[in-house]
Design a protein around this nucleic acid. Structure first.
Length: 714
DNA sequence: TACGGGATGCTTTTT
DNA sequence: GCATCCCGTA
């Protein structure tokens, strides 16, 4: 595609060509607030990119006056590329990123205003958990009595609601747990400030705080961002909402895009009223509905419509598709997870055999834990697959260790990272020594690393003193080296000088060889970073910590079946979709089942999942599933019943027909496992059968009318 | 201080 | 059923 010269006049019709009237209107309505209600597959990304191209190419808006916020880094990148194709390299100067990445950029510039330094660290969920545990220890709270994970969640929620520790104390004195959470929150924030670190929620929280307390700073950004765009507006939380409001308040050129039916993040603080109340917040707003779906067959779309219609709390909207009817939705009743996996494999192979590609197929599940059964089966059947999300590259121990070294060096105050690596590899700096150093640091108001620099003054043994001195000079040396080196060169130095790589090289364990490979992979990542931009170590760290696994893979589409959670699939589309585990307590998930809101959000998730499919949708459920090593029987998901029967083609092991039991038949009992029928007694409701189990349970008499037995094929 | 064995508790979903 | 963490032992 030809890249246009920046000064050349761009023909407006080239930007809007091929759009339907609503889409065209959305592109050309550039002034004032605009709400685009975009159903699944309605070409929303295309509208967004063309709208921005229109601003740049036709309205002659400068790129640095445009802000566009997306849900993932990947979609930001994609959108940027698409705009570039339309208007050329100028597009690079736009701010196009996630909320978090945008806030990092702002906070790097404004850190001093908040009493932070601009080399601050960003704590991820695990660091966060470590810090919270430390605070609980300091405050003498029993971690067995008060679950740190729950406190972490409560603190995160408070930040999303823009509550400071003080405000949380005032509002939440209702329960003991809440007031403890507020105390830990306070200590935690103090700790973060002292180690010059923000957690994910802080990035937004502090930016909002800055803008609400410093009118001059806010005005600078209001004057900069003349045109604002927010994608997935239905999934913004209170803090994000406030941030957008503040920025848009002056010029009010705010375009938000969303679909309340696709709101799936309420559990992490997203507030659907942000989109529902847009008209109230901006009475002069233009509202455009995009209801034509360009993605799916009408069968798939009608099924999705039928399911979502069961939600009471929604605005009526009906998507339609001019695509053909397509195939029916296949619903498969599996015996168990293995059988379900076998079904998926058979259908994948069928698709490939008919000339399709592995990469056309995607398996969607409710929870990451479900991926294992499918993965094992894929492995066995030699089907190439790729799991997105779940345990990411950056969660691996060796990667976290190296990152902790880098964080320590980039931000010497970062005690969380320092504690992680101080004795990795082993340096004979043990628990007791650390404790004393922490106390010493605390008493003299030093950071832990500073305290280590003055280890002679702390009262630790001669051996420990020597070990700490050595460690301290290692870190100082590395710190002094970082200037002038690329990130890659620097990481090489870290791996070498710390002895970290050697630790694994001298090991003969299989898994340690794997770790070495991962370290090599990390260097590939740094090389890519160095090539792209000549950033600092802090830039690299910020970029990687805000990157999720989903963002990593974009350009090269591997020819493999993709596997991910339904949440992760939002915004994506695939020719063939397998929705597995469609059972009560799995989907909808047990923890969302007791409230109407919970169920409705699960239904939104179902709507999202169904509408990912372009051509063919398979839904499967297990009549029996082992969870925690225990056999469980679940009813098929209620969402299945909500799809009109005409759209469905059923197969598999339907549990409705009572099987005919005969001696010699192999059956499976929910608790005792498989066995052979050895005797019969009575009939109909009173029928009892004797089963000799393969397990140590021996022979037992069972009434099929009371216990759900499965007949196994042959 | 390092390692191994056993108990424990866990499963939503993510920037 | 598995990974993590805790505690006991060398």
């Amino acid at each position: 595609m030809a890249v246009l010269h920046p000064t050349s006049q761009i023909d407006p019709s080239s930007i809007t060509s091929g759009l339907n009237p609503e889409q065209k209107l959305a592109v050309e309505t550039t002034e004032g607030p605009l709400l685009i209600i975009a159903g699944a597959g309605s070409g929303k990304t295309s509208v967004m990119t063309r709208r921005i191209a229109f601003l740049l190419g036709v309205r002659k808006v400068e790129p640095w006056n445009i802000l566009a916020i997306t849900f993932t880094n990947k979609s930001a990148k994609e959108m940027n590329e698409r705009v570039r194709k339309l208007v050329g390299d100028r597009a690079q100067d736009m701010w196009m990123s996630t909320f978090h990445a945008m806030c990092v950029k702002i906070l790097r510039r404004e850190a001093e205003q908040l009493g932070y330094e601009n080399n601050f660290s960003i704590l991820d969920a695990q660091d966060q958990s470590a810090a919270i545990k430390q605070c609980m220890l300091d405050l003498n709270y029993d971690m067995k009595k008060f679950d740190p994970a729950i406190l972490q969640w409560k603190i995160s929620s408070a930040k999303n609601e823009l509550l400071s520790p003080k405000q949380m104390k005032q509002t939440a004195s209702s329960t003991l747990l809440d007031s403890i959470a507020a105390n830990v929150y306070q200590a935690y924030q103090e700790k973060l400030a002292s180690i010059n670190a923000f957690d994910f929620d802080d990035l937004i929280f502090h930016t909002v705080h800055l803008f609400s307390t410093r009118q001059d700073v806010l005005e600078r950004y209001q004057e900069k961002f003349l045109y604002l765009h927010v994608d997935e507006y239905q999934d913004t939380n209170r803090a994000q909402y406030q941030l957008v409001r503040l920025l848009a308040d002056k010029h009010r050129n705010l375009c938000v895009v969303g679909d309340s039916d696709q709101a799936i993040y309420r559990w992490r603080g997203a507030d659907i009223s942000n989109i529902l109340n847009f008209e109230r917040d901006y009475p002069e707003a233009t509202i455009i509905k995009l209801e034509q779906n360009y993605r799916s067959t009408s069968t798939i779309l009608e099924a999705a419509n039928a399911v979502i219609a069961h939600n009471q709390q929604r605005k009526e909207k009906r998507l339609w598709s001019a695509n053909g009817q397509g195939e029916k939705i296949s619903v498969y009743a599996a015996l168990d997870q293995t059988d379900e996996a076998v079904y998926v494999i058979a259908k994948v192979q069928e698709h490939v055999g008919a000339g399709g590609q592995y990469r056309d197929c995607t398996v969607l599940y409710r929870a990451n834990a479900q991926s294992r059964a499918i993965e094992e089966a894929f492995l066995q059947a030699a089907i190439p697959y790729k799991i997105l999300g779940g345990l990411t590259f950056y969660d691996r121990r060796e990667i976290r260790d190296v990152m902790a070294y880098l964080k320590t060096i980039a931000n010497p105050q970062d005690e969380i990272s320092l504690l992680r690596i101080v004795n990795v590899p082993k340096r004979n700096i043990g628990e007791g020594t650390i404790r004393r150093m922490l106390d010493f640091a605390h008493d003299h108001e030093l950071s832990l690393l500073e305290a280590m620099g003055r280890v002679e003054e702390a009262e630790v043994g001669a051996k420990a003193t020597a070990a700490i001195k050595k460690f301290y000079s290692l870190i100082v040396d590395l710190h002094d080296m970082q200037e002038g080196l690329s990130v890659t060169e620097f990481v090489e130095e870290v791996l070498r000088k710390t002895g970290y790589r050697e630790m694994y090289e001298t090991s003969h364990k299989e898994e340690d060889q794997n770790r070495l490979e991962n370290l090599a992979e990390l260097l590939t990542v740094t090389r890519a970073f160095d090539r792209r931009r000549r950033g600092t170590l802090a830039d690299f760290l910020a970029e990687t910590s805000l990157l999720s696994d989903l963002d990593k893979e974009s350009g090269k589409t591997e020819n493999a079946v993709h596997m991910m959670t339904m949440h992760a699939s939002k915004g994506l589309e695939f020719p063939v979709v397998f929705l597995v585990g469609a059972e009560e307590t799995i989907f909808p998930h047990a923890r969302s089942m007791d409230t109407l809101e919970g169920i409705e959000e699960e239904r939104n998730l179902c709507y999202v999942a169904i509408t990912r499919a372009r051509e063919k949708l398979h839904i499967s459920y297990c009549t029996e599933r082992s969870i925690f090593g225990q056999l469980q029987m679940n009813d098929p998901s209620r969402f299945l019943e909500e799809i009109p029967a005409d759209f469905i083609e059923r197969s598999g092991h339907d549990g409705h027909v009572t099987p005919h039991f005969t001696i010699g038949l192999t059956v499976r009992h929910p608790q005792y496992g498989t066995g052979v029928i050895t005797d019969l007694n009575g009939a109909e409701e009173d029928l009892s059968i004797a089963i000799t189990f393969h397990s140590r349970h021996g022979t037992k008499w069972v009434k099929p009318s009371l216990t759900k037995l499965r007949v196994l094929d042959s």
